[in-house]
């Protein structure tokens, strides 16, 4: 019933490379490239709370700052910050760090397709690197629905538009697909902890996308294991 005739099953993810500890002044940092997207994330914390208004007696306060590749951060970036903050609060054991603050800084470097998934994966690796206690790890997978109703996992999309810092031009990008999904899974029960969608799709397509992304997320969890194994060798 979930089967769709024109559906392609491509569990290919774009090549991921990551390097931890690239910034000496941060508690945890990572540079990650995922196909045509890349970003640097650094995590600092737990530190004292900068503004007393944000102090929480029961858990750590999270602050996320997202810097776009070019131009000043605007509404889009605030929106992404909010989502990332929510996701991170889900996976971090914030109750272990009361009256303190955890800062996550994200610098987008190549904003190709699936940059948001790339950023979330980078946040996860940076958090692992920083040694902040986490409930589980998380993996984000990007998936699009093209004009022929095919679901494509993590498409390679060489956009030919030139870099611009005006927000209006940024917003009209990525209109070549019917819809795109970014699913975030946690590692314990492999359940969805966040979904971010754009465009029009049916519930079947959504379910299919989720199913595909869940399969693909296993590869990312494997990648985390690989990464941890390599670093554990040296440390």
């Amino acid at each position: 019933m979930l089967k769709m005739e024109a559906d392609k099953e491509i569990l290919n993810l774009k090549p991921i490379t990551a390097e931890m500890n690239i910034l000496s002044r941060s508690d945890g940092s990572v540079i990650i490239t995922q196909g045509d997207s890349s970003c640097i994330v650094n995590v600092n914390g737990p530190t004292e709370v900068v503004s007393m208004a944000n102090m929480d007696m029961n858990k750590a306060y999270m602050e996320v700052s997202y810097r776009p590749r070019c131009g000043i951060p605007g509404v889009n970036e605030r929106y992404k910050e909010k989502i990332i903050k929510n996701i991170c609060e889900t996976v971090i054991l914030t109750a272990l760090y009361p009256k303190s603050q955890i800062n996550i800084q994200i610098q987008e470097m190549d904003d190709g397709s699936g940059i948001f998934a790339c950023v979330i994966n980078a946040c996860n690796v940076a958090l692992l690197n920083s040694g902040i206690e986490m409930r589980s790890t998380m993996a984000a997978v990007h998936c699009v629905l093209d004009d022929k109703d095919n679901l494509i996992i993590d498409p390679i999309d060489y956009s030919d538009d030139t870099p611009t810092f005006s927000r209006i031009q940024k917003a009209v990008r990525n209109s070549k697909y019917k819809a795109d999904f970014t699913f975030v899974f946690e590692s314990l029960k492999e359940s969805v902890i966040s979904v971010n969608t754009n465009g029009n799709f049916t519930i079947h397509q959504y379910n299919n996308a989720q199913k595909l992304c869940k399969e693909a997320s296993k590869k990312i969890f494997e990648f985390y294991c690989d990464l941890a194994r390599k670093y554990a060798n040296v440390i």
Binding site: E5, D7, K8, E9, K14, P15, I16, T17
Partner: peptide, 22 residues
Amino acid sequence: ASTWTKEESDESSDSDVQVIEE
């Protein structure tokens, strides 16, 4: 370096009939 290399896939060539089967 740990790198994920994907197979040079034939994504573009066979577009139509593929069923969701593992």
